[in-house]
Each structure stands twice: as C-alpha cells, then as structure tokens.
C-alpha cells in the first residue's frame, strides 16, 4: 500500500494549503485597509507587496530543496504539508532523523515503508514544535502591550530598542556565516570562504544600490535592493565556487 501518496493525503495537504492562504489573505486585506487609514501611500503598499513577493522566490526555492530531501523519506505529501505550516526544514529534518535513525535505527536515505515509523514521525513532528501555537494566543497581547508601553513612554528609546533587537538577530546570523563547518564527505572542519565572500558581495551590492538610490534618485529601487542584492550574490556564489572557492 502506497500510503505516503494516497489521494486522501493529497486532500489533507490541499486543506492545509487553503487554510494558510486564507489566513494570509485575511490579514493582508485587514492590513491594507489599516494602511490606507494610516494614510500610507497606495503606491508604497503595492510596492511592499510586489517587492516582498519577488524577495520570497529565492528562499522558497531553498525550501523546495528541503522538500526534496524530506520526500526521500516521507514521500512528497507530508513534507508539502509540514513545510507550509509552523516549522522549517531546519526543524522537520532533525525531527525525522531523531525518529527514523535515533529510535527505529532505520535509514534516512530510503522511503519509509512501515506505517508504524511513519505515524511516529508525524506525531513527533507535530508535537515537537507546538509551544508557539499555545503561547501566542495566551501571551502575545501582553508582550505587544509591553512593547507599546516602551514606545509610548519614550519614543526615541522605543525606536532604538527595536533597532537593537534587529541587530541582535542579524549579529547571530553573521556569526553563523563565519562559523567553521564540517565537510560532508571528509568530516574535516573548515571555514567557508564561499559563504563569507557571498555575504560580503551581498553587503557591497546593497551599498552600491544605496548609492544609486540616493545619487540618481531611484526611489523605486529601495523596495527591490535587498532582493537584487541577494539574487546577484547567489549568482556570484556559483561563480566563486566555479573559481575554486570553498
């Protein structure tokens, strides 16, 4: 029985997809209405939508690579469902490995044929990432209230506080890029100059776009500068790798 690709599983995945799309459209409509009330220019709203959509294409392709990796173990439909909701491949893959290899001592490289392993993976994947779905409905209003309090009490500090939060996150990922990583074949630890060069290229491209925006008054580019910097530097990563940079 090919339960991994059964028609009713496709139905479940379609339902999940429709749920996520409905929620997105619901909040998009509400936010656009509110943006108009706040007198945000319609052009800016449209640019935000289109630039974010363009920006999302490349990371979505990376998610497809995760889908491909997971499909080798779980079939296509479950990864489709799982990657459309809470989590990411950085969660789904370790959760699968924990059960398939860690518990059942089976191979992560072959498709699961035993329904027992399959349902165990599913339940672990679902319950292993459940806290935000409980914490947020209970506490988000309070968290946001506190953030608003900081902002209302001292507007200047509120703005600095938010910038500092963004920088805290960014700093962790800058460290992540330079960290030594393990070669998948030899097991040797190395620093990826390819990753560092890609990071620096992306940063430099952003600076160049910034100059073009300011000097040549190309305000429209502001919305696309990050997407273009990201895509071009990904192209440069291919070039660097071709030149032998690792």
């Amino acid at each position: 029985m090919d339960f991994l690709n059964a028609w009713w599983m496709v139905g479940l995945a379609l339902f999940v997809m429709l749920f996520v799309l409905s929620q997105s459209v619901f909040f998009l409509v509400k936010a656009v209405k509110r943006a108009r009330y706040l007198e945000i220019d319609s052009k800016d709203i449209k640019r935000t939508i289109t630039s974010t959509m363009v920006f999302s294409i490349a990371p979505s392709m990376a998610i497809l690579i995760g889908l491909l990796a997971l499909s080798k173990v779980l079939g296509v439909i479950v990864p489709w469902m799982r990657l459309s909701v809470l989590g990411a491949v950085t969660y789904e893959l370790p959760a699968t490995v924990n059960v398939v290899e860690g518990v059942f001592n089976a191979s992560i490289g072959t498709r699961i044929a035993d329904p027992q392993i399959f349902v165990t993976v599913l339940w672990v994947m679902t319950l292993g990432i459940i806290p935000p779905l409980i914490i947020i409905p209970l506490f988000l209003k309070r968290i946001q209230g506190r953030v608003q309090n900081v902002h209302q009490k001292d507007r200047r500090w509120g703005e600095i506080f938010m910038s500092a939060m963004f920088l805290g996150m960014i700093s962790a990922f800058l460290g992540y890029v330079v960290a030594p990583r393990e070669d998948a074949v030899t097991g040797e630890m190395y620093i990826s100059f390819l990753a560092i060069f890609t990071l620096l290229s992306s940063a430099m491209l952003m600076v160049i776009f910034g100059i073009v925006i300011e000097k040549y008054k190309q305000a429209w580019l502001r919305n696309y500068a990050l997407s273009f910097s990201m895509l071009i530097s990904m192209g440069l990563a291919i070039l660097y790798a071709f030149m032998g940079v690792r």
Binding site: L174, L199, S202, A203, M206, V207, L226, M230, S233, I238
Partner: peptide
C-alpha cells in the same frame, strides 16, 4: 553553491542596511 548560500546572501544585504 547558490542554494547553500542563501543565508549569507540574505544577511549580508540586510546586515549592512541595519548596521
């Protein structure tokens, strides 16, 4: 190499804007 380096490509540009 392009798919492997999405995070550096993303955070390089984002980083410079906020830094």
């Amino acid at each position: 190499p392009a798919f492997d380096n999405i995070i550096p490509a993303l955070f390089g540009a984002l980083g410079v804007a906020f830094i």
